[in-house]
């Protein structure tokens, strides 16, 4: 398998830091995309601002690198103007969960026919490691030097409860599972949300005693728990909304519904 079947190799090496999980998400996305046999000429990529949003610029396809937090809104317009185009959104936790929070909720509520990949590295990497809406409680960032007093958003739960058809979460320590859920999601309609927890050794890792990519990857593996295991343990969906209850992030397919998508609804 060649590594650059959907990417612009003329832009390599890419700009991401050593060990950055975004690169792993790229590899997984490419594999799933190829497995699915989708056409690059009929797929468009939209992203916002932040490290993960730079991903759109590396795909050898039509790509729109937009403003901070608004990728889903741009993607909505693009999709409605060309309804048979597959529109993929690359975004991050700051872009989607903080500045773009409302667009995220509304796009899920509409069940807009978009495929959304959120690379969640739990902090603002591009600007140097500030607290984001998914930074864990008590964790250190440049803007929470005494530990984060706030609690994190569970982006996947937000997506699921807002109405997204398909919601799955894995980490970059689970590349094969990521490929599987991306592939599965690409074949569905409505809003499909893939949350990929990713290592940010340069900032989140460095401030939180996991500065090496290997340490950060281990942290991801150790701090995640599969939804099926949660059930075995007698934990409910409510338990894992507060990540502090289990101390772990739930991974797996969190929602797989068949609600009427936006396009289906307007084309009835």
């Amino acid at each position: 398998m060649e590594n650059f079947q959907i990417y612009r190799e003329d832009r390599w090496p890419h700009m991401f830091c050593p060990g950055c999980g975004i690169g792993t998400v790229m590899s997984c996305f490419q594999r799933a995309f190829l497995n699915k046999g989708l056409d690059l000429d009929r797929t468009a990529f939209v992203s916002g601002i932040g490290c993960s949003s730079r991903l759109a610029g590396y795909v050898y396809a039509d790509s729109l690198h937009t403003t901070h937090g608004r990728a889903l809104a741009f993607a909505t317009g693009l999709k409605l103007a060309q309804k048979d185009l597959e529109v993929v959104v690359f975004t991050g936790d700051g872009d989607l969960g903080s500045i773009g929070g409302n667009h995220f909720i509304q796009a899920c509520r509409r069940n807009m026919d978009l495929f959304v990949v959120c690379v969640n590295n739990n902090n603002y990497g591009m600007t140097g490691g500030q607290v984001s809406s998914t930074t864990w409680h008590d964790y250190l960032t440049t803007t929470t030097p005494k530990g984060n007093p706030e609690y994190p958003f569970d982006l996947s739960r937000v997506a699921a409860t807002s109405g997204a058809n398909y919601v799955a979460r894995y980490t970059t320590a689970h590349p094969k599972q990521l490929v599987r859920v991306i592939e599965e999601g690409l074949g569905k309609k409505g809003l499909r949300f893939i949350e990929a927890w990713a290592a940010c050794p340069t900032y989140y890792g460095r401030y939180n005693k996991m500065a090496s990519p290997v340490e950060h990857t281990r942290w991801l593996k150790e701090n995640s728990i599969h939804i099926e295991q949660m059930k075995v343990d007698g934990k409910t969906a409510e338990d894992d909304i507060d990540l502090q209850v289990t101390g772990k992030v739930t991974i797996g397919v969190l929602r797989d519904a068949d609600r009427m998508s936006y396009l289906e609804a307007i084309q009835r």
């Binding site: 398998m1 060649e2 590594n3 650059f4 990417y7 390599w12 090496p13 890419h14 991401f16 050593p18 060990g19 950055c20 999980g21 975004i22 690169g23 792993t24 790229m26 590899s27 997984c28 594999r31 970059t172 590349p175 094969k176 490929v179 990519p213 990857t217």
Partner: peptide, 13 residues
């Protein structure tokens, strides 16, 4: 393929 998929830099073939 864990190495190929995990490699953040698309450096392994």
């Amino acid at each position: 393929e864990l190495c190929i998929l995990s490699c953040p830099d698309q450096a392994i073939i």
